[in-house]
C-alpha cells in the first residue's frame, strides 16, 4: 500500500497530460462551436485550419530563431503566435469571401456548407503539405521542464516522479487567457453581444440593425485565433504533423457535440471530458495498481482497457452515447 506514490503515478501519466490535451481540445471545440452558432454549419476544415495556423507559426518561429530572437525559457513559438493568427484570419476571411458568402446569400441548406467546407479542407490540407511537407516538425525550444522527474524526486524523496513539461504549463496558461478573453468579449463588448444575439435569433438580430457581415468577419477572426492557438499548443506539446491534425477533427467534434453544439461552456467541458476519458481508458494502470494492492494481488497484465491505437474509439463511443441519450449535449446546445 502506497497511496501517495500511486497518486503521483496517476498525476504524471493521466491527470497532467489529460489536462493539457483537454485544454487543446477545448480551444479546438470552441472554434467549431462558434462557427456552428453563428454560421450554422459543422466546419470540416477546422482540423486543417489548426494545421495551417500552426504551420505559419512554425515558419515564423524558424525565422525568429534564424534571426537570433528567442523567448529565453519560453518557446519562441509564443512570440510567433500573433503572426500565425493574423495570417490564418486573413485566410479564413478570404475563404469566406470566396466560398461561404455565396451560399449565405443563397440561403443554402447546412449540408451544402458542409460539403463546401470539405472542399476548403482539401485546399488547406494541400496548402499545408505543399508548403511544409508531410513530415513531423518539432519547433519547441526553451526550457523543457517546469518540474523535471529528478528535481521532483530530490524534493520529495518519493519513488515515483511527477514531471511537468513547460509546454503543458504553457498550454494551460494560454488556454485560460484565451477562454477568459473570449468570454469577456462575448459577454461584455457590444460586438460580442451582437454575435450572441445573432446566434440566438438571426431574424431578430437583423431587425435590430446588427450587420451580419460584420458579425461573420469577427467570428472568423476569433475562430482563427482559437484554431491557431489550439494548433500551436498541440504542436508544441506533441509534434506537428499535418495528418494528425486532420485526425484531431473527430475528438474536437465529439467535444463540441458532447458539450452541446453552439454552447461555448459546453465546448470546454466537452474537451476535458473527452481528453480525460481518452487518456484514462487507454492508460495501463499496472504501475498505479502495484502501489495500491498488496503484493500477492499485483496484476499480471497491463490493466489497460484499450490499447492506445483505439483512442479514437473512445471519443466515438462517447459521441454515440450522447447522440443516443442526449442529442442536444450536456449543456443544451442548439436544437437537433
Amino acid at each position: 500500500m502506497d497511496v501517495l506514490n500511486a497518486i503521483i503515478v496517476l498525476a504524471n501519466f493521466v491527470i497532467v497530460p489529460a489536462t493539457a490535451y483537454g485544454a487543446q481540445l477545448a480551444l479546438g471545440a470552441l472554434g467549431v462551436t462558434l462557427i456552428y452558432g453563428i454560421l450554422r454549419f459543422s466546419n470540416f476544415a477546422h482540423g486543417d485550419t489548426m494545421a495551417f495556423g500552426a504551420m505559419v507559426t512554425i515558419l515564423m518561429t524558424w525565422a525568429l530563431q534564424g534571426a537570433g530572437i528567442t523567448l529565453g525559457l519560453l518557446p519562441t513559438a509564443l512570440l510567433a503566435l500573433p503572426v500565425g493568427i493574423i495570417v490564418t484570419a486573413l485566410l479564413l476571411i478570404g475563404t469566406d469571401r470566396l466560398v461561404y458568402r455565396f451560399y449565405r446569400q443563397q440561403k443554402a441548406k447546412p449540408v451544402i456548407y458542409v460539403i463546401a467546407s470539405l472542399g476548403v479542407m482539401f485546399v488547406m490540407n494541400g496548402l499545408v503539405r505543399f508548403i511544409i511537407g508531410v513530415d513531423d516538425q518539432r519547433f519547441a525550444d526553451g526550457e523543457r521542464f517546469i518540474v523535471s522527474a529528478r528535481t521532483f524526486r530530490e524534493m520529495t524523496g518519493l519513488d515515483e516522479a511527477l514531471a511537468i513539461r513547460t509546454t503543458q504549463g504553457i498550454t494551460l496558461v494560454v488556454a485560460l487567457i484565451a477562454v477568459v478573453a473570449l468570454f469577456w468579449f462575448l459577454n461584455r463588448t457590444r460586438t460580442g453581444k451582437s454575435m450572441r444575439a445573432f446566434s440566438d435569433n438571426e431574424d431578430l438580430a437583423l431587425l435590430s440593425g446588427i450587420n451580419p457581415e460584420k458579425v461573420v468577419i469577427v467570428t472568423w477572426i476569433i475562430v482563427a485565433a482559437l484554431a491557431t492557438t489550439a494548433g500551436v499548443l498541440y504542436g508544441l506539446d506533441k509534434s506537428f504533423k499535418p495528418f494528425t491534425y486532420f485526425q484531431l477533427l473527430l475528438p474536437v467534434f465529439a467535444s463540441a457535440i458532447v458539450g452541446g453544439l453552439g454552447n461555448p461552456v459546453g465546448a470546454i467541458a466537452g474537451g476535458f471530458l473527452i481528453a480525460f476519458s481518452e487518456i484514462s481508458v487507454t492508460y495501463a494502470f499496472r504501475r498505479a495498481a502495484n502501489h495500491l494492492l498488496p503484493e500477492a494481488w499485483e496484476p499480471d497484465g497491463l490493466v489497460q482497457l484499450l490499447s492506445t491505437d483505439y483512442k479514437f474509439a473512445v471519443s466515438f463511443t462517447i459521441l454515440l452515447i450522447v447522440l443516443i441519450f442526449k442529442p442536444t449535449g450536456l449543456f443544451r446546445g442548439k436544437s437537433v
Binding site: 454549419f41 459543422s42 470540416f44 447546412p110 449540408v111 458542409v114 485526425q247 477533427l249 473527430l250 467534434f253 465529439a254 457535440i257 491505437d309 483505439y310 479514437f312 474509439a313 471519443s315 466515438f316 459521441l319 454515440l320 447522440l323 442529442p327 437537433v336
Partner: peptide, 22 residues
Amino acid sequence: ALGLRSDYLAIATLGIAEIIIA
C-alpha cells in the same frame, strides 16, 4: 445517428471509419 441533424451522421461516419481502420 439518423433522425438527428444531418451533420451528426457525417461526424458519426467519420468516427466509424477511423475505428474500422484502427
